[in-house]
Nucleic acid binder design. Sequence first.
DNA 1: TAATGTAATACAATCGATTGTATTTGTAAA
DNA 2: TTTACAAATACAATCGATTGTATTACATTA
Lengths: 341, 341
Amino acid sequence: MENNKVTIHDIAKELNIDSSTVSRALSNSDRVTQKTKDKVNAKAFELGYQRNLLASNLRNNKSNTIGVIVPRISRHFFSSAIAGIEETAYDAGYNVTICQSLEQFDREQKIIQSLSANRVDGILISISMETKDNAILQTFKNSGRPIIFFDRHIDIPQISTILIDDFQGGFDATEHLILQGCRKIAHFSGPQNLEIYKNRFKGYIAALEKHKIPLNEDLIISSKLMEADGIENVKKLLSLNIPIDGIFSSNDTAAISALQYLKQQGFKIPEDIAIVGFSNEPISSVIEPSLTTIDQPGFDMGKIATNLLLTQIKDKQGQTEPENIVLKPVLIQRNSSKKLS
Amino acid sequence: MENNKVTIHDIAKELNIDSSTVSRALSNSDRVTQKTKDKVNAKAFELGYQRNLLASNLRNNKSNTIGVIVPRISRHFFSSAIAGIEETAYDAGYNVTICQSLEQFDREQKIIQSLSANRVDGILISISMETKDNAILQTFKNSGRPIIFFDRHIDIPQISTILIDDFQGGFDATEHLILQGCRKIAHFSGPQNLEIYKNRFKGYIAALEKHKIPLNEDLIISSKLMEADGIENVKKLLSLNIPIDGIFSSNDTAAISALQYLKQQGFKIPEDIAIVGFSNEPISSVIEPSLTTIDQPGFDMGKIATNLLLTQIKDKQGQTEPENIVLKPVLIQRNSSKKLS
DNA sequence: TAATGTAATACAATCGATTGTATTTGTAAA
DNA sequence: TTTACAAATACAATCGATTGTATTACATTA
């Protein structure tokens, strides 16, 4: 069992040259002759040398790694975003460390600390539902390393964001229901510390206003939008004895569990109650009836966010003005809302 | 904009003590008085000190990090396994670096190299469909750091594995179809370099043999089991003009696309053709008819794999005998296969 | 041949934390 | 007060790679 602890010093010793020359040869510096480079490379291969990135990163004071924090890697939107992030980062020679907060604030805090201690060069984050405080992010930023919010964010002026137009998405979803003939439209909203849910909610209100439909506060329910919440929300609505004919849910998870529960209770979807979700999870096209929803371009968002982050990393002065990029959401019309042909 | 580059030397200078004392104070060594520890901790807090893990890990020659490589983080089975891995690793004070190979061999190679260069203490891997060669894994192992295969593996005697009993799963799935009355059962298999697909296939054969059903080679199709493959496979089967009445697919993805395509073509599921998948992806319980499948205990697998890895990491001698743990699969009966009540 | 210049390589400090060994400090016993 | 000993802290080397500066080797020109 050979022990792969070959260092540049071992190579240097074997060749009777200095380790600094080995280092320069390996990084193809023009201060070393081709002949020496060839010898070094051959010996390095022979010994199975592998550069110790811990040492290298320590010396260079950078890790060539960016940290990514999302609530849950299994969500389609986030895994698409990660795909875009990885593609862009790898092309630029950066590594990516993926972490999930599982929607827990304290776990998110620990992750940021750990990424920071491991000296990542920057962070891309979509915050958890519990996140209100931003002290740790601020500390990280103060250490001279950039952060970018994508999708889920809190309002911090100095930090760049890349979002979709949640107001527009909420508006489109709601107006679509109205155009299908719905008049009593319920709304499932999420934690109000997250801008995305606030904005989807505002879109919902704006659509009602535009079509002169009175707002009924009872039809608006905030929750964490988990599977169980969709069912709970429906139960609450049914207990009100208000004959609702449409639901706009701020995510697909709650929309789908609501849809299943309503079907189970004998409601016809979309005839009795039309439903629109948000995010276009793959499951939404498979469920019957298929779920109308808002598509978020996760992959593109990941790519854009990464490019932005890499720009800020390369800009050593930290002088870049924060950017705020907004992408267009797209309404995907499926069967859960088709009242009219 | 303060610059968070506080080191133990800064603390030492401010307190007029040596950096070694600071280091020992911070790690609560009993070679330092409580009074000094208090002073150090207070100053560390005041300056916003954060231990540089690059330096610490370099010195200690370990990263306190384990690497996890899966084909795709968005697959439910893998994200469940990751949840189990993270829980166990965090409890033991280890960090986790998650990587996805996207089923590409060269990408997997690069990931292993990168993890190795970053000096992870061990690797948990579920290999890609393309992986045949194991030279890099061998090199990593030779560097004295353990590797454990979970679920997808190649046969290497010195490496521990944690798997489910794929033979049993394949057998149960197939026998279930037989007991429902199927006699012409097709099988969607995966790349034969992966033991899991070989073993599911063997289980299929064994079930047919037990029930004295002749094996028809034409009904066995190997593919990468992607969404498109499920449809392709069905088209091939239909073109044979053999009236099949059952399909056992080695994963849910192909089973689901096959199911959808067959429905679309006017077949009744399960009356005309019963279908059983493998993995119990969440989507399989939502599709109509819901998909009978084999559940793999991903979370438990992740926990067990991690415990095994941590044991081997702590065993500095590398003398632990490789273990091979096999978990029981569970048949989840749903509507896609219910011919009899 | 000696002077000059440059290409190639060696030396040594550094990144930040850790740890074995040496030194200082303080207290108790003689 | 001196000796002895232990407790507390300082010194210095180390992990492996990088890089500014110093030195050597060699070739060119006067």
